[in-house]
Write a protein that binds this DNA or RNA. Structure first.
Lengths: 198, 198, 198, 198
DNA sequence: TATGAATGAGAATTCATTCAT
DNA sequence: GATGAATGAATTCTCATTCAT
């Protein structure tokens, strides 16, 4: 008696998610070129061949990981966008959200960084990762401009402020990964936002 | 024939430096695993085999690139250390120096980042790269503490301030690499230092 | 429940024949190595696993296809053998029969050719295919010798005539497969037999 | 001291030819899919990797083998075309030339046949092989028509005669390959040409 | 010293076959 | 009996490194 269609679908969904998460972790640590499919298979406890039933190639798998990360962040940003409050309150919430995301899923942040940094990654995938950053920056900028209008953000070139703020977040995400000495340091959202204060 | 010996040595030194610079550029763009020795040879205008006369292996070459970058930065920091001025003046000069270095030699920053980020790089080399960051951070911290004593830097946990300041620099260096849209934005040193202002 | 047993057996037979026909078609087009079990399963409308209920392996399946073709031809030849007529009439009927078979079932001819041609096919199966040709040639030769005795066939080495005649048939079968330009050409049996005329 | 450019070129030319000949032999026996690059490497006495310095892929190698065969035959046909004589003399020479070629280089004939027969071979390469047959047939047809005009060839549809004659040649080439029993049979050119006699 | 031909150890990918359901 | 998820043994291809010249 074959498995029911539903049971099969569930098995497939679960496997897919499992591979995706493991892959994110390993891509984050090693990058695309250095990651072996055998690493992912071993860490997932499955055979190499099985991975190819779920993802057509190593690149396809990376693409899926990136798309997944992108989805999650953009969904989060969308929710923040719809919440009420003064621009500064929104900036606070945004910063907290981004920072929390980096802490909770450092692997996803890292895969994206790896992808952005390395020309070895196919341009199509890099474009996807760049979109991730760009969408975030666009939202940062919106809030900064609103904040300036409300007198809550310093009156400087919004582009400059966006770049500073974005870079700070990104630098923190990266730095925390490899600077063990500083991984215990407590950072306050207020302190980060200081760069935007009037 | 001591003169010819000397001339030979000079040719060797020159060629070594040349390979080193080319390698830095390519490692910066692709990382260790995806960089081909043949790419470096071609870009250096020499045969593959010859590279092995100068560097024992691809990894050895990466190590040399990193060590070279490290050397230059530490020398620069040492010079800054010896210059007179108030802590804030020194912080200003330091920031300008780091920022200028990133702009002029983005490849160096990137090789180091690639190296730090990827577990596929031998630990020994990664340790070297980490030292690069750590030495810089140590200097940042010194100046921050001095600045606090002089009332020129906000009174917060020096670790936190160091991490914020370092991450900002590093995020800017990375971001400029792939965020074309923001590559033209003018950044003022004062604005960066705002994060440390009382 | 003997009836259900019987019904079951009938279903099995039918399915077996179905797989066999589909497999003949695909083996004919791609040969053993390049044919995928999944192709055969899909074209048969069943799961991959099920094929293994009917045939122990891909090679076993090829063997069955060849044996099937062999059976049909030998049965046909046997019938021809038993019919009355002059040697020339028999040669005519034989040629027509072979030619018609090739036109109607080009796949069979082709599987056999693929099998004969490729050393990658297990010797046992190739021997089977060779038997297919040999039995036909034996019959050709018999008729040629009879024809010579009756003065209806040219007096030349019977081996030579058999080889010429057999090769002509086989070349026509093969050529029609890939020479689209000539697929519409009408060929008369008389014309083919000309090679044997006194 | 590096090898002279000339010496290198010679080594390369020789290796290329060597691989090509060995590959023809093995492709002929096994076909594209069944041939392992390792087979060719072993039979050539070189490493697998080296083959890829001369041919980009297995398919590329097959393409080169086919193109090589094609070249040789077409060159031969061109020479025959330019020789003087009656149509029948030309047909005789042509037949002898083709037959001799098949006997001397059966591998090349066979690779072409394999290629024509198997859909697993990329269409581009199959087209090349088809061209091989088509060019030959065109020449056959020319001579047949000339022969008819000179009263030396039977007055039948030239298409039909061409197909018969071409199929006979081709069937002989194939048959000789796997019908050991008949490989010793002597065939006379006259006998083959009988199919065209008035 | 310099070259580039040659090697060989992986790594990605495919697919026949097995097996739990 | 029937399904299709899962396995793992090939196989192609790549590239750091060596070595004859």
């Amino acid at each position: 008696m074959p498995r029911s269609e539903q049971a099969n679908q569930q098995i497939r969904d679960e496997r897919r998610r499992q591979i995706l998460n493991v892959a994110a972790e390993i891509f984050a640590r090693k990058g695309l070129a250095e990651t072996r499919i055998s690493d992912i298979a071993a860490a997932s406890g499955i055979s190499q061949g099985l991975i190819y039933r779920y993802f057509a190639s190593k690149e396809e798998l990376l693409r899926a990981v990136i798309a997944n990360a992108l989805d999650q962040v953009l969904t989060g940003l969308q929710e923040l966008r719809e919440q009420p409050g003064t621009p500064w309150e929104k900036l606070y919430r945004l910063t907290a959200y981004m920072w929390e995301g980096m802490r909770r899923r450092p692997a996803y942040v890292h895969v994206v960084l790896h992808t952005l940094i390395s020309e070895a990654v196919p341009e199509e995938i890099r474009a996807l990762a760049r979109r991730y950053i760009r969408e975030s920056y666009t939202f940062f900028r919106e809030l900064i401009v609103e904040g300036q209008q409300a007198g809550q953000v310093v009156l400087a070139d919004p582009e400059e402020l966006t770049l500073l703020y974005g870079s700070l977040l990104q630098g923190l995400a990266t730095g925390a990964w490899f600077m063990d000495e500083y991984s215990e340091v407590q950072l306050s959202i207020e302190r980060m936002l200081r760069i935007l204060k009037p």
